[in-house]
Amino acid sequence: MRHMHSRWGSQISFLSLALVLVALPFVMQNDFHFDIATQIAIIAATVVGLNLLVGFAGQVSLGHAAFFAIGAYSSAILTSRYGFTPLPAMLAGAVGVAVLALILGKPILRLKGHYLSMATLGLGIIIAIIINNEGWLTGGPDGIPVPPLSVFGMELSIFEQYEIAGYTLSGTLLWYILAAGLLLVAVWIAQNLIDSPIGRALRAVHGSEVAARVVGVDTTRYKALVFVISAVYASVMGSFFAHYSGFITPQIASFQHSIELITMVVLGGMASTYGVILGAALLLLLPQLLTDFQDYEMMMFGLILMLTMIFMPKGLLPTFQQILRRALRRSPKTDP
């Protein structure tokens, strides 16, 4: 991970990600592929935010789907019922989530380890119950339609074709470009944060909280801060997800969704921004490849989580980097 943290390495990684995102439309053949890629980008951006909390600061949240859902439902409800345009609705959702995370984070983040996991789990379940039961507002278990995303009167729908500078571009392609752009921004901000004094303080909370405190880091404040940041990440991506899919159900607030998000972090690699993107991509692709096993999806996530913990506690990408580094070191006799 040392190489990831040097500015050089992180710039190369960022460029590689951008290149992959630019290259993908040339290999993807149909709308289905674009749909999956767009979903992966949105969820990956969510997980990059979650990783700041879980991977870097070491505070496990098992209820992150709640924040994703609040963002999604804020966008859905405010635009369809209260006449908001999408961007202000998204902003309102994000501010609401930030305030909620700040209020709840103070007491919750005093807890450590399993207790923190249980508290965030409870939070997630409560939000899921509210969304399920308050049908007059949320549509209940049946879900709620979401108007398409529109910016300054320009609507972006996956079912439309758009004329831009003489080219005809499909709505699916434009949505993919938007989602890829969002992912890049999410990664850029996350990496900036990690490389700043704030990020150092956050990683120190994970490494040795008492060491951070004796050099003047107010760890309580930083834990609350990263909790809010990761919640806002989830909220904003939830909003985009809602507009993208056009219809949302309480499923997005479910415990299962929270587990999926955390599995992506653990599988891809805690504290590895690019690792968790890989984790998100794999876990969203897997159900597509194994459609026959759909009934066992939850079991599969559990199994993957367990196997990763046992055999690759650092996660896919960091483990792979480690192997690569060792191989490079072994072949030519260079200095360590």
């Binding site: 991970m1 040392r2 943290h5 004094p197 150092r200 303080a201 990683r203 120190a204 994970h206 490494g207 040795s208 008492v210 060491a211 951070a212 004796v214 050099v215 003047g216 880091v217 504290a271």
Partner: peptide
């Protein structure tokens, strides 16, 4: 009490936090 998830230099940089 060293932050083992950071480089040596980052540990010292952490010391300059205030």
């Amino acid at each position: 009490q060293i932050c083992m998830n950071m480089t040596a230099l980052e540990n010292v940089m952490l010391g300059r936090h205030r």
